[in-house]
């Protein structure tokens, strides 16, 4: 009641008082709100943005087969008591030391399956590698650490005339003993990489979010193709700046490897890169080898 009275009193003032002040910023719409809270600015030139992205490729590419290989290697140091067998550990939520001094904690298991399939008259072999459990930590006696919190998956379909593979690297993965940059630095991602071989050409596609070594990118159908000598051929990559604003690289679909770079709608120019060395390496990592 009192508040109502106050409101009545206030609204009963002179007509001038009763009018909203157009400069008071009290509205809730974007147009009325001063944007003085926003102090972002472009962090990179076009060339620097392309170089930043190239730094990501230079670290190698996340691969479920690589993640599984390390897992197998480290599981070999376990024993019958800890973690229980050399394929999986599920009863180690509070961790255990094997006799060899390796520490296993959490839930860990990779599984390979091979299935003959026939879809719409096309027969193919589906090889799949997946984490059954990917929430673990393995420590070596010399202080190296393999930590995971997420999913690694590779599904490869081998047809009579071509092969297609898709990897999904999801969550957080790190192996500090790795000689691959992405694995040693650790990655946080929800990244899907597609690969195709056959018919005289090979290609890669990249989709999803990927963070590695303090660089954070979102891929939207970025394509690399052998028909373009492994240069990029279309797609968009969004790079996160330190201030959390984003720089967008829109790659031309003309095999030029060039991208138009913008920040907050501002055109920063065009920059080109030669990433031809990375394509075959990523293709191999994505196809996987059992």
């Amino acid at each position: 009641m009192y508040a109502l009275f106050v409101a009545t009193v206030l609204s009963g003032c002179s007509p001038v008082d009763a009018q909203p002040d157009p400069d008071d910023g009290g509205g809730e719409t974007a147009e009325e709100t001063p944007l003085d809270y926003r102090d972002a600015a472009p962090q990179w030139t076009a060339e620097e943005a392309v170089a930043e992205l190239e730094g990501v490729f230079a670290l190698g590419w996340p691969s479920p087969t690589a993640a599984r290989a390390v897992f197998q290697e480290l599981m070999a140091f376990g024993d019958a008591e800890c973690p229980g067998n050399d394929l999986t550990f599920i009863n180690t939520l509070d961790g255990c030391f094997s006799e060899s001094g390796y520490w296993y904690m959490g839930l860990g298991e990779f599984a390979w399956t091979s299935t003959e399939r026939n879809t719409d008259g096309a027969a193919y072999l589906e090889d799949a590698l997946r984490t059954i459990n990917g929430d673990f930590e393995i420590l070596t006696p010399d202080g190296r650490e393999y930590t995971s919190g997420g999913l690694m998956e590779m599904v490869r379909s081998t047809y009579s005339d071509h092969t297609a593979a898709l990897t999904n690297v999801r969550g957080s993965w790190q192996w500090t003993g790795s000689d691959e940059g992405w694995f040693m630095a650790g990655t946080s991602s929800d990244l899907r990489t597609g690969a195709q071989t056959g018919g005289g050409s090979e290609s890669l596609s990249f989709n999803g979010s990927y963070g590695v070594d303090h660089t954070y990118a979102y891929f939207d159908q970025l394509v690399m193709s052998s028909t373009c000598d492994w240069q990029t051929n279309g797609g968009v990559v969004t790079l996160r700046q330190d201030d959390a604003s984003t720089t967008v690289l829109t790659f031309a679909d003309d095999c030029s490897g060039c991208a138009t770079v913008t920040w907050d709608g501002e055109d920063l120019g065009v920059a080109c890169a030669d990433w031809s060395a990375y394509g075959p390496v990523i293709l191999a990592a994505t196809m996987g080898v059992r």
Binding site: G149, G171, S172, Y216, R240
Partner: peptide
């Protein structure tokens, strides 16, 4: 992306900031 993982829970994930507008079909505000 792995809800019970301490490794996931402990760290911030800058690369996922862009997932919000996609997942919820609306820009942050």
């Amino acid at each position: 992306l792995e809800p019970a993982s301490a490794y996931e829970m402990t760290r911030y994930h800058p690369e996922r900031e862009g997932d919000g507008p996609i997942a919820l079909s609306v820009e942050p505000a």
